[in-house]
């Protein structure tokens, strides 16, 4: 059984590794911070579905922690000014 409370220092590292390695997510750029009973997810992804998948995987990996999903959607604006080199 996962017992995050006994190894709090490793929970963030473990969640981050699972987010990279789990085939549902494969997200390498997500920052995971644990403060007491709270787990914070930060970063950018390109769809709402991916945001939620990441949250689900984080919840499974760190049961018992309250997950705060602060992941933003990548903005893809129309191309702007060109740069002259």
């Amino acid at each position: 059984m996962e017992t995050p409370h006994y190894a709090p220092h490793y929970v963030a590292a473990r969640v981050q590794r699972v987010l990279a390695e789990d085939d549902r997510t494969n997200e390498l750029g997500i920052r995971v911070d644990v403060r007491g009973e709270e787990l914070f997810l930060r970063g950018q992804v390109s769809s709402d579905e991916r945001r939620h998948q990441i949250e689900d995987v984080a919840r499974e990996t760190a049961p018992g922690l309250r997950v705060h999903n602060e992941i933003k959607l990548v903005e893809v604006r129309e191309p702007g000014e060109e740069e002259h080199l």
Binding site: V76, P79, E82, E83, L85
Partner: peptide, 9 residues
């Protein structure tokens, strides 16, 4: 944060 950037050589 844009679909692409344009560089003018």
């Amino acid at each position: 944060e844009h679909a692409y950037v344009v560089y003018c050589l």
